[in-house]
Design a protein around this nucleic acid. Structure first.
Lengths: 146, 146
DNA sequence: CTCGTTTTCTTGACTCATTCCAGAAAACGT
DNA sequence: ACGTTTTCTGGAATGAGTCAAGAAAACGAG
């Protein structure tokens, strides 16, 4: 289902450039990467790419909804190509790792804009905080109880 | 219901200091302030207080659950003294202003930790994004349609 | 396929919110 | 009143991301 980056870019009226293709392809394969991850991945296959170029691609594509940006409190932003469905995320409060969470109850459950004090609500975001598998074993002082 | 800062600090085993009292009092009166707001408010009544002191107070109190920190994506953190109940927030995506939202449906609706890929989920956070009253009038080019 | 225009990329300086550090100054138990 | 411990000050530093100006690619027309 991972759509061809070429298609995506054309569909959005963007020029096809090596950095863009590489970023989208990388993200398709590695969802929830940070900008730094993306930069690394992209450089691995293209050689030299400026950090700014990566941010440009990421920002442009976010704006056009080719990618979605997640910004977990206290961690650098992460990006994914799964857009369009408003799925939620599971985030590790220690390492920032993120995973997708499909809507729990059939449709949008608590997404009903509440009596919103003058606000125009257009989206509800749900983040489940916890510890990922790797970060659950942190008490690394494993002295056997006396 | 706003509890006495003095009580709170003592209850948490913290020393009573001018910056702490001032921060807590300010926050009680101005929920969802940013660190900068708090610093301004505190200085207004104490004269000189270092930025670091404000952050220290805020961090210490967050850790001890005397205050709660909200970190809306793309905006500086905001703080409030309403802790203990897991209410949600309404955030203006333009100016970052935040308002409280009591649980929409009786209990926690989609707060059920999903089948969490190895994660230990301990909290669900819901943010309603939109535009606050002041930010809804932004299209300031009000040419009448030709 | 060559040119010109427009978009994108590179480089490097810079911002902002926040933290780190070391020493000075307050709290408070005795 | 004192000494220990916690907290505050001042200033440098960090990390993630942005801004800005010029060089380099895309691509549509000829």
């Amino acid at each position: 289902m991972t759509p061809d980056p070429r298609e995506l870019l054309r569909g959005a009226g963007l020029r096809l450039t090596a950095p863009r293709l590489a970023v989208l392809e990388w993200l398709g394969r590695h969802p929830h990467s940070t900008a730094e991850h993306v930069a690394d991945g992209v450089r691995e296959r293209l050689g030299t790419v400026s950090t700014q170029a990566v941010y440009d691609v990421l920002n442009t594509c976010s704006r056009l909804n080719l990618v979605r940006r997640i910004e977990p409190a206290g961690h650098p932003a992460r990006y994914e190509t799964r857009t369009g469905d408003d799925h939620h995320h599971l985030v590790c409060r220690r390492c920032g790792r993120a995973e997708d969470v499909d809507h729990v109850h059939g449709a949008a459950p608590c997404l009903e804009p509440p009596n919103s004090a003058g606000f125009t609500v257009d989206r509800a975001e749900v983040v489940f905080w916890g510890l990922c598998g790797d970060c659950q074993l942190p008490p690394r002082n494993e002295e056997p109880p006396a």
